[in-house]
Design a protein around this nucleic acid. Structure first.
Lengths: 341, 341
DNA sequence: TTGTATGCGTTATCAC
DNA sequence: GTGATAACGCATACAA
């Protein structure tokens, strides 16, 4: 078993080329106007010949730049996040940046530790999907001065840059659609109150149903953005005699839970109950019935977030800004005119 | 705007504590039996007081260990990979390892570059999801002696460790099921021939249909594991008069494409065509009709892969090994007895 | 147990 | 343009 070949360094090349390590460094990095073309060519030739591979760690230590973005995501199994992370990774790698992907721990102190660990690795910055308000992660991000972009949720204050979808507009689209279909009693399964989107959609829902003069519009809160939580919440919403004829779920997974519950109660969607989700997650067009939902422009979200992130990385003291994307209603078969029964 | 506080280093602590940097390093790392309890306590106190944060980069440069795993995944938007990456990330972070997630470029030379870049960052190793055979990434992994585990696909040879599902068993389960339902003409939409699972399932399919004495069992190959590719391939499979009464798709996404195509041709599933997928991806239980498919134990796959990976990282010259997981048939509503028509 | 010295591989600031 | 030299922050073999 032969010993592992020791790494070829810049010094080896310098020796072989009869120049100084500094010159090699400049040549290999393509610093222009500071090294003669002949020397550069010669150095590159030798580097190739020796099979030189730069040690990025050493360079990072020196330059204090790792070109690594940390993407913090609540739940990788949630199909919603796949496309977002994909978009981010694509956009960032185009700029030679690699992505450290971590899942948000439930425990606040673990979250804090996590961001500390990332900071200690000198990541270029943070892309946080669905941060909750008052998240300890944000506290550390601020403390350590990490360039940070919030994706898909914002915080109330303007401390951090964020890219979000216009939640009020989502609710408006949904209510308009359901109202046009004749629904007057519309329920809402809200997301957790700790999430900005959960709150924003709920608040908009309450305000707009009131403005429309709708009386019987109950709201229940799901404990998380998951199918089981949706099912559980729907249990409360759909029991009793004053059951709404339509339900707007705060996201598609919750909507699937509502669907589970409706079926368990012998209700047919959309005949007995119209159902609307949010996000237009992959495959919701194929479920039975195809889900009416609100599409957020995931591609744009990723692209804008990545761009914003890179701005912050290159200009550390840049003021935070917020980009708001317009959602689109996708009407499928889970909504129908209110049955006159 | 105050200047950024310069990093507190081990030297600062040493100075403040009146000891030497080496001692601080030992104390803070918890090297046992090499530093007196009092000094250790004192050093820790001062470190805290000064807000010391270790520079992981510097440590990595010195120790040649980054504690970063690179997870290479073909397509983050594919719902199949979410749970796998999730499982890997969870298991690895339990061992203080962070995950660099990258998507496989289509271009072979880009793939090579990618792995070179990862190697130059001294990642601890590679977890490659769905590597194709003769992939240049594997060539580099070998060349740079990177601990590597193949997840969800293996290569023919025994060069790398891998965790895979038993494809022959999958095919056996599917064919048994369809045969029991009375199907005698069964089609197969295979995955790309470049993928080991694609080939393994196809080969098993051909062998087993022959062993069963089935005559009319056409096989077409999808260009990729995607819904559009499935649809296109199904176009070839379903045309003509000798259309099979059942189709086994190499994975769920391809099955969805087959479903699209069947509908476009006015065929009803499962009345006119029984359909089986593979993987039991999230949400396929909710589509119309709920998809009969083969479930791969994703949790086990992630856990085993992570464990295997960590073994290789800690023992660089460990011989490669392969772990095979047993799949399970999940019967839903996309398969039915052959209609006598 | 603690101190000392050196190296990890690179970049960057000076001079020349 | 090029060379010399000093960081970057930490770990570790060796000496004491």
């Amino acid at each position: 078993m032969p010993a592992l070949a020791p790494q070829v360094t810049i010094d080896d090349i310098a020796r072989a080329a009869g120049v100084h390590p500094g010159t090699v460094s400049r040549a290999l990095r393509g610093v222009t106007g500071k090294v003669s073309p002949e020397k550069r060519a010669e150095i590159e030739r030798i580097a190739n010949e020796l099979g030189y591979q730069p040690n990025v760690l050493a360079a990072s230590l020196r330059t204090r730049q790792t070109n690594m973005a940390a993407i913090v995501v609540p739940d990788l199994a949630n199909p919603l996040f796949g496309p977002i992370v994909q978009g981010l990774e694509n956009a960032l790698r185009d700029q030679q940046m690699l992505c450290l992907v971590v899942q948000t721990p439930a425990d606040p102190s673990k979250r804090r530790e996590l961001v500390v660990a990332l900071a200690n690795r000198h990541v270029s910055g943070l892309l946080i999907l669905s941060a909750e308000s008052d998240d300890p992660m944000l506290e550390i991000a601020k403390l350590r001065n990490l360039p940070t972009v919030l994706v898909n949720r914002g915080t109330g204050d303007r401390q951090f840059s964020s890219v979000v979808s216009d939640d009020a507009e989502s609710v408006r689209l949904v209510l308009e659609h359901l109202h046009d279909l004749g629904h007057r009693s519309i329920g809402h399964v809200a997301g957790p109150g700790t999430s900005s989107t959960g709150r924003a959609r709920r608040d908009a829902f309450i305000r707009m149903t009131r403005d429309l003069g709708l009386k019987n519009c109950p709201v229940v809160e799901a404990s998380s953005f998951t199918r089981p939580a949706g099912r559980e919440a729907a249990g409360k919403l759909l029991k009793g005699s004053r059951r709404p004829s339509a339900v707007f779920a705060a996201n598609d997974l919750i909507a699937l839970g509502v669907l589970d519950q409706a079926r368990a109660m012998g209700l047919s969607v959309p005949r007995d109950l119209s159902l609307v989700g949010h996000n237009d997650m992959p495959l919701v067009d194929l479920i039975d019935p195809p889900l009416t939902t609100v599409r957020v422009a995931v591609d744009q979200m990723s692209a804008q977030a990545a761009a914003l992130f890179l701005e912050h990385v290159s200009r550390p003291n840049q003021a935070p800004s917020t980009r708001v994307l317009m959602p689109e209603l996708i009407v499928r078969a889970s909504t129908a005119a209110r049955s006159v029964g």
